[in-house]
Simulated assay, not measured.
Amino acid sequence: MIRTSVRRALIPGIAAATIFALSACGAANEDTKNDNAADNGPESSGLSGVLKGAGATSQEKAQEAWTIAVQGSNDGLEIQYNPIGSTDGRAQFTDGAVAFAGTDSAMTDEEGQLSDATKTCGSEPIQIPAYVSPIAVAFNLPDVDSVNMSADTIAKIFDGKITKWNDPAIVAENDGADLPDLKITPVHRSDDSGTTKNFTDYLGKASESWSYEADDAFPVGGEAAEGTSGVIQQITNIEGAIGYADNSQVEGLGRVSVKVGDEYVAPSAEGAAKVLEVSPGVEGASDVDMAVELDRTTTEAGAYPVVLLSYLLACQSYDDEETQANVKGYLEYIVSTEGQERAAEEAGSAPLAEATAKKAQEIVASIGG
């Protein structure tokens, strides 16, 4: 069964800063705890102790919102979510260093991930969707807010085969646009990232020009930066730069509208939700595993296929009763209508569809049962 002691040290600096920020948010929100209590539901009240989680940076804003709400109605509870990336989050969960994790790519058994987590938990781990969001292909061009691109064009840019903004391939998709004779600087994540895996999965499935496998590590060159914030900073600092990041965090940058069927679709929560609705579940998944095979080639009107579905990992039971109650209560709030609406407001995500939310709620309700 999972242990509550930390056997792998959290990355210094980031961990301390995040823990301080979330604790401060909880303290600042004490005056509103009575207002929040009515929204949280019975399992999200009466919690105490320290709940540790780690993982996807894409969930950071949503995790902050969920933390504020749940801490606001639980005086004795401190929630620590360390946004160290999906790969490290999964590793810390499997090592028993954290009680739950966020991941932008579903945990599979291709590299023994599920088997290792099963050993840690004592039974198959819970894997539920928590955060659905478009990945924006964001860029920095003076006086240009939007550019149309097909998957092939995007793939060639990130593979270094299209190097100028006025390349004929881009011009052909943007009739009448004033595109400069300016170098394109692709920016990618330097750290292993579920966002990278989702982005490269899209390129591999939707483009005939991308020859690399979907991976947490970006496979080709260009400018590299750590974490979502690092990518945004690089794009902002370099005129002509282009990169990929959670849509909620690219405010102030231009966004690519992606070709879907015969139309070009801008990133939106609604477009991301449509992709999830038409995507099948992973074959052979357990009853507590809601992993999905995202349909990157859909031609559904309004769908935006450059999307990430971010999951939460947890155990079905815990040796420590306090940890078990905290995990159950916190996750119950996240997949509730209130929790999903709060994430949509604060992080721009798409609320889970009713049927998806109901199944996730049933799985969370079974924790410790």
Rank of each mutant, 00 (worst) to 15 (best):
D181Q: 14
G284N: 08
V187D: 14
I157E: 04
N82E: 09
S146A: 10
A9N: 14
L114E: 09
S123A: 13
V265W: 01
S193N: 14
N198Q: 15
A27Y: 13
Y81M: 12
E223D: 13
V137K: 04
M1A: 13
G122L: 01
D178Q: 14
A214E: 14
E239M: 03
K359T: 14
L203W: 10
D88A: 10
S257P: 03
G85D: 07
A357Q: 15
S146P: 02
I367P: 04
N29K: 12
D246Y: 05
D109L: 05
Q361S: 12
Q316W: 06
D192G: 14
G302S: 01
A314N: 10
G271M: 11
N34L: 08
N36L: 11
E270V: 12
R7N: 11
E111Q: 12
K164L: 09
A21M: 07
F93S: 02
V275T: 05
W165C: 07
D75M: 01
D116H: 12
E270A: 15
N36A: 14
A24F: 10
E322G: 02
K205A: 13
G89T: 08
Y264C: 05
A344M: 04
S133C: 04
G85H: 03
T120L: 01
A214H: 05
M290A: 01
Q324R: 13
G102W: 13
G302K: 00
E30G: 07
D152Q: 05
E223L: 09
E354D: 15
A117D: 13
A353Q: 13
L141E: 02
S5K: 13
P125G: 00
T337L: 01
Q63D: 15
Y81H: 12
D109R: 06
D287F: 01
Q233P: 04
A65C: 10
